[in-house]
Design a protein around this nucleic acid. Structure first.
Lengths: 336, 336
DNA sequence: CACGTTCGTCGAAGCGCTTCGATCGCGTCG
DNA sequence: CGACGCGATCGAAGCGCTTCGACGAACGTG
């Protein structure tokens, strides 16, 4: 079943069928209808490889999955799904690469023209893949912002603003001492933008508002969260507001507070940074700053398509965080 | 940079270069070396589309991600990663399809020759995609076994045996009444093989050993797990052994037992069915039946490659479960 | 009314690779 | 010693599509 079969069936030339399909030249309504009919009747599907060869476009983009320790898998999956969905909406498919394939993988899929562009998730501040992406000659979009974003296209939540907005919310409620339960130390060690920027925003806003900030990196395992919370309550009894930027630590954190006899939000207010489900499915539902995975994935794809169409794109696209108040934050309790 | 450039540089014909690359004809060691050198020097990478067109092989397989409610995302991700890794080991890439694309997506990627074969995860007993796969004319491998597996190739853990082995282990330790904390009701409602087969094995083995079985489908939310455990302990005080076949319910289950003052394994023994990390990261580490995601993914890819090479493959490949004793099971406590 | 446009369509030339049959030496066997 | 076989290599014909230039017809326009 080839394009020439369709052409014969419709009584036109193969090129006409091609133009009907691509819309790159005007075709009379009557002819178009006839061709489309034939395509439907014959169940014609163009050969992807032939297309890619002739048009120099594979209609496929690559997505690099992040799989290092510390990554919250459901969030990564949400990104992946939103990228696939957005790509499909634009007639593109998605080729999956693992982190393990590394820069060689990027060079391979780009060099063989398997893909037209690349989306890289979980970009570190000093990401080894960035130089490769720069020299690749294939368009790419990063989710996350490296230290030097020159010549790149990056999408991210504005984590600095996210950190700030959390502190602002707590300060507004009267809290004078706030803690940030952060990512595991390993995440800071490999210098991840979203982690550092959240801290920066958290601390800056606290300073500006005369609030005392405290940053506590934290492993996600329940026991370690419990230990961290125990230490926090003991050593810093004045802390009445907590920001959590560590998805899997959220449930253990709430457990630990409960176990310590602290009511949320009666004694302690908690703000989470993470996907909505995380916040709504907790008990109590958490005031949170949304991690808009769908919007970010969609935006990344949109930017990549712009680059494929030779439009120029902003170097950095920061999505503004929104804080949704729920049941986990309240005014600071009066001092005893 | 094309194959003819390499040919010129090495002083041979393009076909010779092609044969060096594919190994489909014998090439003298000297020539091969010269060609390989040229390839390296020039940094030649063959054009994937041209290759696919000429050879009728894309060297890509499709993977359909499961994303329905009730799916444990980290497990799905483990499968995906193991499929990608195994595929890469065999010179293939992986195209990601979402469940949402449905059967149309399967027809599209097969019909356009984007992929050479398809791996479908999370197959239901009456999966709507099965008839499509049968008529597709493209090889496919299912992870999971549908009710009618005629003419298909399926890989799965032997969940019936998994259910049995758990009961056998508990019975061996002297437990006379055992409960299965199962999947959420919605999973049974859509008739999922792994869920039903585990129950079947669980009940059959119990019957054969004269043990009283009890099956409790269970939502994974902590509150619901707690409620289910509460009811279980109240209405069936004789239950001293619990099998959990529901990853996200494991932690809440242990919490609920602790809250009810039951020691594990002192008062109640617990066996989990799931990935190893789930078992080793719990407190106490759980006796468990491993869900060998890596082996299953690898096997699925291997079977698909066999089909691509026209070898015939068994309809059903069941992987035998292994029970690893850890700290959560012990002999039944003496009756008071 | 002749000429220039525009519109719709066609034909042919690739895109870069694989593969089949043919060719060319060269060693070997009868 | 000629025919034969075999290993190594080449040339050319596609694979199925897109796209460019060309062409005829229809349609204004001066």
């Amino acid at each position: 079943m080839r394009i020439s079969d369709v052409a014969r069936h419709a009584g036109v030339s193969p090129s006409t069928v091609s133009y009907v399909l691509s819309g790159k030249r005007t075709i009379s309504a009557a002819t178009r209808a006839r061709v489309l009919k034939s395509i439907e009747v014959l169940g014609y599907q163009p050969h992807a490889g032939a297309r890619a060869l002739a048009s120099n476009r594979a209609n496929v983009i690559a997505l690099v999955l992040p799989l290092r320790p510390g990554i919250h898998v459901p969030v990564a999956m949400q990104f992946a799904v939103s990228v696939v969905t957005s790509a499909r909406d634009r007639e593109h498919d998605v080729l999956l690469l693992t982190q393990a394939e590394g820069e060689g993988g990027l060079r391979r899929v780009a060099g063989t023209s398997m893909v037209d562009g690349i989306i890289v998730m979980d970009v570190e501040l000093n990401d080894a893949r960035v130089p490769t992406l720069r020299t690749l000659g294939h368009p790419s979009v990063l989710i996350g912002v490296p230290a030097d974003s020159h010549g790149l296209t990056c999408v991210d939540l504005d984590f600095d603003a996210a950190g700030r907005i959390c502190v602002a919310h707590l300060a507004h409620l009267g809290h004078r001492e706030v803690a940030l339960i952060g990512q595991p130390p390993s995440v800071y060690r490999r210098r991840t933008g979203f982690a550092e920027r959240t801290i920066a925003g958290f601390e800056d806003e606290a300073r500006e508002r005369g609030v005392r900030p405290l940053v506590v990196p934290c492993e996600a395992a329940p026991a370690q969260v419990a230990a961290a919370v125990g230490a926090l309550l003991r050593d810093h009894p004045g802390v009445s507001g907590i920001v959590v930027h560590n998805e899997p630590a959220v449930a253990p954190l709430l457990d630990a507070l409960r176990a310590a006899g602290r009511d949320v939000p009666g004694d302690v207010s908690v703000v989470a940074i993470g996907p909505d489900e995380l916040a709504t499915e907790s008990v109590p539902p958490l005031t949170s700053v949304t991690l808009p995975t769908e919007e970010m994935g969609g935006r990344a794809v949109a930017l990549l398509m712009d680059k494929l169409a030779d439009a120029d794109t902003p170097e950095i696209t920061l999505i503004q965080p929104r804080l949704v108040p729920r049941a986990s934050t309240a005014a600071r309790p009066a001092l005893p």
